[in-house]
Design a protein around this nucleic acid. Structure first.
Lengths: 195, 195
DNA sequence: CAGTGAATTCTCCGGATGTAGAATTCCTTG
DNA sequence: CAAGGAATTCTACATCCGGAGAATTCACTG
C-alpha cells in the first residue's frame, strides 16, 4: 500500500528536477550523475523523473540551457570591428560562464570528457555555430584555424578556472582575465600566422 | 571445477593489464572505465587485476606514466633564455602528448572532469611541478598568473585536439600548431600585462 | 622428486543503476 | 457530483560494478 498519489497544491516538481539535474550534471558530468541522485536532490521519487523526461539522456538534453545565441552574439561582438575583438570575446565568454543561476556549460564540458555523444554535441555547436561565424568575418588566411586556436585558449581558460581550479586563474576577476587573455588571442584575428 | 591454475610459459599478463588499463582510462576516464573491461581487453580474468594491483584506484595510479620530469624539462626549455620559450614549450607539450605508445595524459585529463581526486592530482602536478618552476624564471610582475595563463592555452589545445577533436586543430601537424601557438603565449613571458 | 609460492580462474556478495509497470491520490472538466 | 487525466510513489527486474575468498595449476627451489 504505497503512500503514493498526487500531492495537493502546485508542487513545481518538474522545475525542481530540472534545477537538480543541472546542478548534478555540472558537478559530476553525464555518466557519473544518477537519476536517483537528481531525484533525491529534488526531493522526489526517481520514477517521477522518468515520468517527466522519459530517460536520462533526454533529461540531459532538456536540462542543457544555452543562455547565449551565437547568431546574435557573434555579430554583436564583431560589429565594432576586429580591433579589440579578443578582449570583447573573452569578456563575453567569461560572463556567459559566470551567470548567477549556475554554470550553464559546466555540465556539458564535464560530460564531454567521458561521453562521446556529449563531445559530438559540443563539437557541432562550437564548430558550426560559433567558429564558422567567427571565421567568416576574418580577412586573413586560414580563418578556421585562427578561430579554433582562439577558441582553444578560451576552453583552456574554462578548464583551468572551473574544472581543475588552478590558481591564480580560479580566483582572478573576470575583468583581469579578460584584460590579459584578450590581447593574447587578438593576434589570431589580425596578424599573419608565423611561417 | 574451475579451469583455473597457472598457465604455461611467460604470460606477460601484468604488462597486458597495464597496457589495457592505459587504453581504457584514456578512452573513457577513471569513472567510466571498468576493471572488467580492462580485464577483457587484456584477455584475463578480472580477479587477476585485483591480484596484481589490489584496487581500481591503485591500478589507475600505477598506470599513470609521466614520461616527462618537470625538474628536468623546465630548466632545459628555459636554458636558451626567455626568447622563443613559447614555441619551445608548445612543441615540447605536443610531443609529450603524441608519443608512439599512446596518449600518456589523456586518461588523466578525461578523469579530471568527473573525479575530484584526479583533479586534485592534476592541480598539484601542474601547479607545483610545472608552473612554479616556470614562474620562478620570469622576471616580470605576476609570474604565477603569467605561467598559468600560458598553461591554460596548452590545456585548451589538448582539449580541442584530443578530447573534443575540433577541426582543423585535431588534424593539424604539431609543428604548425607550435608555430601558431608559441608566439601567442610568448607575450605572457616577456611583455607587460595590459592594465 | 618433494614442496612452496606465484599465477590464474571461478564463484559469490552487497550495492548501485536505469528502466518499467502498477497502484494510489488529487485536480479539473463536464 | 461523476469521470478522466495528471502527479506521485512503491516495488521489481535485469544488469553491471568493485571486491573478496577459495580452488586449481604451474614453475621454481632444494
Amino acid at each position: 500500500m504505497p503512500r503514493s498519489g498526487r500531492r495537493p497544491g502546485n508542487s513545481g516538481s518538474r522545475e525542481r528536477i530540472l534545477a537538480a539535474a543541472r546542478a548534478e550534471f555540472a558537478a559530476r558530468g553525464y555518466d557519473s550523475a544518477t537519476i536517483r541522485g537528481i531525484a533525491a536532490a529534488a526531493g522526489v521519487d526517481p520514477a517521477l523523473v522518468r515520468h517527466y523526461f522519459g530517460s536520462k539522456e533526454h533529461l540531459f538534453v532538456v536540462a542543457q540551457e544555452f543562455p547565449v545565441d551565437p547568431s546574435e552574439f557573434v555579430p554583436r561582438l564583431l560589429e565594432p570591428g576586429i580591433d579589440g575583438l579578443g578582449e570583447r570575446l573573452t569578456t563575453f565568454f567569461l560572463d556567459a560562464w559566470d551567470t548567477p543561476g549556475g554554470r550553464p556549460f559546466l555540465g556539458l564540458l564535464r560530460s564531454v570528457a567521458s561521453n562521446e555523444q556529449a563531445a559530438e554535441a559540443l563539437r557541432q555547436f562550437v564548430t558550426h555555430e560559433v567558429l564558422e561565424r567567427l571565421a567568416a568575418a576574418l580577412v586573413l588566411d586560414r580563418p578556421q584555424l585562427r578561430a579554433a586556436l582562439a577558441g582553444s585558449h578560451l576552453i583552456g581558460l574554462a578548464m583551468a578556472r572551473y574544472v581543475v581550479r588552478i590558481e591564480p586563474i580560479a580566483s582572478a576577476s573576470r575583468a583581469e582575465l579578460a584584460r590579459a587573455v584578450g590581447p593574447a588571442i587578438q593576434p589570431y584575428f589580425d596578424r599573419p600566422l608565423p611561417t
